[in-house]
Design a protein around this nucleic acid. Structure first.
Lengths: 246, 246
DNA sequence: ACCTGAACACCGTTCAAGT
DNA sequence: ACCTGAACACCGTTCAAGT
């Protein structure tokens, strides 16, 4: 790690302060009404200073995207601490993804929007590099799971790590995106939400031939244990089948 | 079908005219720079008239979304005319999805954006109803495939039609969305694009136990035949492994 | 009943002037 | 070197006046 000068530290601290304010606006008024105008008004700084941090509105959204991905990576790290079958650890990774989308739906949406066309184009090169690095770390987390599984002979189909990572990422992304953006659409409302991702990922991992297969193991029980694991580590009440008591 | 008065016909025709202009802007300047201001300027009408058709900018985007989904449904109908194994027909459905995303990337993006938060909220009730109906028809197409497969005993796992439709739709959506929005991101650039969706869907259908399984049948050959099927019916050159000759 | 375009509020972005 | 806020262009939306 390189040393930071006082000035750089101050600049970094102010950027965090601005992102906190932006998240407040997001939470209060929704993603679409985030505006650099409003951010300026809430902050003690002027428009020029805001533009000193974010070269455009999209650059600010990308900065929020970095925040969100960092938080997600922190949850992913907890998934690796779940003890059990390797396939259960892979489930824990996806549980972390879903958990993040539940804890922080607004920032989760930011990640989706951050992938929309026109955002990256208007983001500074420097921040795009940070985004790339974060995405690479997400891929690495997924790759390392699949690599271990292949090395241990847990996966019976002849496939590459890259194929498996893309497939599971696409499934996870697609499931959560549809679940959040179109929760009232027919395809989703007719299903129970807590185990949507578990069901979809289970079908996929079965298709890869990742042992033990879903009919050889009670992965619903695993999902519950994973929920408890995360609850102990984060204190977040998971949205799982048993209704809470209020 | 209900009769339309002359006035209603004229109104409908003008709406189509406006949507054509909107698509022109989209194609030329990208999704983000579509503006009712620009649409007004390009059209022979005034702002008031534009707002007579679209109650908000988002309502206009939703109207484009309807256009896109209708076109997709037209391609889906062609998928049903592919002759072969039932699982090949299901592949044809996903091929149609991918084909549409290739033929018309901009409108495909509109469908993604149409699912973003803040769009449906600012869309007129009437148009939201149309969107719902179109989405239901997409679901019906998928449901009917899976229902036939279950009835014919092709699917060995004990699952419901709803589960299968959501899983395959999530996979298709996730794969294409990631492929289009993050084509340069690491997870995707390291894979070949033409068979991304085939690979992912094959893993999923294997996980459902849909016979014949992918190692009992040459689905790469099926994918090629499906491509030819669509090429004959639509004249669109598919993006398939063999490079074209220019 | 439908159309027009002026008017208003709000937003993104820039930059000369100030410290 | 960094900050400020006025200024400009552009956009979404409304509505009184016109046909």
């Amino acid at each position: 790690m390189t040393e930071l000068t006082k000035a750089e530290q101050k600049r970094l601290a102010r950027e965090e302060e601005l992102l906190d304010l932006a998240i407040d606006i997001l939470a209060e008024q929704g993603l679409n009404s985030l505006t650099l105008e409003k951010l300026t008004a809430r902050s003690p700084y002027s428009k020029g200073t805001i533009y000193n941090h974010f070269c455009s509105k999209e650059d600010c959204v990308s900065a929020l995207c970095c925040r969100a991905m960092s938080s997600m990576l922190a949850l992913f790290a907890l998934a690796f601490r779940f003890e059990g079958e390797l396939r259960e650890q892979a489930l824990a990774l996806h549980f972390a993804h879903q958990l993040y989308s539940q804890i922080n739906p607004t920032l989760f949406q930011v990640v989706l929007v951050g992938k929309a066309p026109g955002v990256r184009e208007n983001t500074s090169d420097k921040r795009n590099a940070v985004l790339d690095e974060l995405e690479e770390r997400v891929n690495n987390a997924s790759d390392s799971m699949f690599r271990q599984a292949l090395e241990q002979g847990k996966i019976s189909r002849p496939v590459t790590v890259e194929t498996l990572t893309f497939a599971s990422w696409a499934m996870s992304f697609g499931s959560l995106a549809l679940a959040h953006s179109a929760a009232d659409a027919t395809a989703i409302s007719r299903l129970e939400s807590s185990s949507l991702l578990l069901n979809n990922i289970s079908l996929l991992l079965d298709g890869m031939g990742w042992q033990p297969l879903s009919y050889e193991w009670d992965y619903n029980a695993s999902w519950q244990r994973i929920a408890q694991h995360f609850q102990q580590l984060t204190g977040h009440q998971p949205t799982i089948n048993q209704p809470s008591e209020n």
